[in-house]
Design a protein around this nucleic acid. Structure first.
Lengths: 217, 217
DNA sequence: CTACGATTACTCGTCAAGGAGTATTTGGAG
DNA sequence: CTCCAAATACTCCTTGACGAGTAATCGTAG
């Protein structure tokens, strides 16, 4: 089992699955992934692509098969997957599917810094997010429906379904949160308001009195 | 409004909110963030921290206030936030809260490559994920309950609530998906099975016949 | 009082991501 | 037939993340 560091970039996995179908040159890999809309779920750009292919070759997961050239264009090296590559692919994909990993989400960061904004500004921002989320969800719904209508089996749109589910859950949560701030039900709201009150004691956001690490409990 | 590139690293935002409380030296920033468990929601390590602080100073969002030294230890430079920094912080945080951004999730990538695994292996991996998710959710539940019991206001644990909500939604989805694969309800399952059947026609994963870009519809 | 492990406070080098740039070729309009 | 725009197939260079390494100091146990 190779070190985790080599499994950091999911693009490498996507590349392996392409080579599983048939040998290709890197640019064709990119075309294939784009055509199947994989770039919506996996970060893809040329700079990374060629680097990733090189790394895969160094690790012997793929091997150069032949180098062809049409006219005076740059050479295109065609790669194929090795047996090691096949095993690594199945292993890696299995792991990605079975083991949830911690992701650092932007909105998670924003929530954790929420008290650095005055309550009313925070509330306005959250309401704005709800509105945007509703639109986004509607658009995604439409796209999924259209794809289905055109005969695309569900199996090939699982990732959109998943993203959709997450977005819906987020909308739900943010709506509840906004309500709890407005209604005053959120515990800690009084402290928060007082930091930004006209005669607010101490500096804004100085929640030094807050219990520190929840994990320490 | 500064270019988006400068707003890429949420650690910079977290650093700004620290300086909002009071002037500090970078290491103290790290201590503060760690003490408040921000490193659970924001990527934090020393290499990045000092780089981020430098960048903030170059952008005039913070300024060096004084340089003290205790004994022959390395100097500690104490920074304070500027007025520009104050505005940038509020702006940035508002934006993070109000505008959902596309994140590239590992599991999203895995789902989009699911057909590269034989159906039974994929199913096993998904079931494994469900089991792990259940444990994780239970643990998070416990931590949140404990924090609340020790008097930590909800306002300071919003990010855990959010992550929790997402995990629950994910568990729900994966359970449904696993059921639909097992019951044969998932459309496309027949194709998928045939690629890996003993006399499977063509190469595994050659879903070249699949409609390409759902966005194109 | 001294030795050594833990903590403090940072530095540096590596390595990867990402995107702007480049050279070639094909397709089509005039 | 010629010229321009778009597509092809990369290359390169700048940022920036990351963590191993380091030097100084503090605590404390023998």
């Amino acid at each position: 089992m190779p070190p985790r560091s080599t499994r950091s970039n999911p693009l490498a996995l996507a590349v392996l699955t392409c080579f599983l179908e048939r040998p290709m040159h890197p640019y064709e890999v990119a075309q294939t992934l784009r055509a199947r809309a994989k770039h919506e779920s996996i970060r893809l750009n040329y700079g990374s692509l060629y680097g990733v292919v090189e790394a895969l070759e160094k690790r012997q997961l793929i091997r150069a098969r032949e180098t062809v050239r049409a006219g005076r264009r740059p050479e295109r090296t065609i790669y194929e997957i090795t047996d090691t590559g096949l095993r690594e692919m199945a292993d890696w994909l299995s792991e990605l599917l079975s083991a949830p990993v911690k992701e650092y989400l932007q909105f998670e960061a924003a929530l954790s810094l929420l008290p650095a904004l005055p309550p009313d500004e925070a509330l306005a921002a959250l309401r704005q997010r709800c509105a945007t989320l509703e639109i986004e969800i509607a658009l995604l719904d439409g796209a999924v429906a259209a794809a289905r209508a055109h005969g695309m089996p569900r199996l090939f749109a699982l990732e959109s379904e998943y993203v959709q589910v997450l977005r819906r859950a987020e909308l739900d949560y943010v709506e509840r949160l906004a309500k709890d701030i407005e209604s005053g039900e959120l515990t800690g709201l009084d402290q928060w308001r007082s930091w930004y009150a006209p005669g607010g004691e101490r500096d804004a956001d100085a929640h030094s009195d807050v219990p520190t690490d929840p994990q320490s409990c």
